[in-house]
């Protein structure tokens, strides 16, 4: 998990029920995330499953994304348990998703891997923001601020998973509390 508690950059805006087949289509699941070269490749295919005519998420020439923040509606990440989904977003250079709500396994995988911060907005933001707008996400104060009009929107606190997020993922947390052995 990155230790950045302030994230700045342009947002990529999506709507409700963005499923894992849209985040990483199944034809790319032959790639294994723990192999570094394939991890990078997964990143280049992040959100390749969006409907025809959608804006490209991985728009940089090196296959990464210019958008460190995704804003979405309800039930983000529904569908498969494929951990390739948060990994593809993270590998592309995305740092945080701000959705109204999440599908359970996607949220869990995001926290467990530490690839991205799965944050929840207090209100529906996917109609308030447009792709490309510059923002600042402040995780210390649970806010997202739009640069153009300085408008501030609230984020929910992360709740029970805060210790896992703070530790940097499932393994770091388990080591911290002594559930598994520390590494020398």
């Amino acid at each position: 998990m990155t230790k950045e508690h302030i994230i700045r950059g342009p947002v990529f805006v999506l709507e409700d029920n963005i499923d894992t087949d849209q985040i990483i289509p199944a034809c790319y699941l032959n790639l294994v995330p723990t192999i570094p070269d394939e991890y990078r490749k997964l990143g280049s295919f992040a959100l390749a499953g969006l409907p025809e005519g959608s804006a490209a998420f991985t728009a940089n020439s090196d296959g990464s994304t210019p958008y460190p923040i995704i804003i979405a509606g309800e039930n983000f990440g529904c569908g498969s348990s494929r951990e390739h989904a948060p990994i593809a977003l993270g590998a592309a250079g995305c740092k945080a998703v701000i959705a109204q709500s999440y599908a359970r396994i996607f949220f869990r995988n995001s926290v467990a891997t530490g690839e991205i911060y799965p944050l929840e907005s207090e209100e529906r933001l996917c109609e308030v923001f447009r792709t490309g707008e510059e923002v600042e996400v402040d995780m210390n104060n649970n806010t997202i601020t739009r640069f153009s009009d300085k408008k501030v929107f609230g984020l929910k606190s992360v709740g029970a998973v805060a210790p896992v997020i703070a530790a940097g993922g499932m393994f770091a947390y388990a080591r911290k509390i002594g559930m598994i052995k520390s590494r020398d």
């Binding site: 951990e83 467990a112 499932m170």
Partner: peptide, 10 residues
């Protein structure tokens, strides 16, 4: 219940 690779590796 379904889980991801990291939880399964754990």
């Amino acid at each position: 219940s379904g889980i991801g690779n990291t939880d399964a590796g754990f």
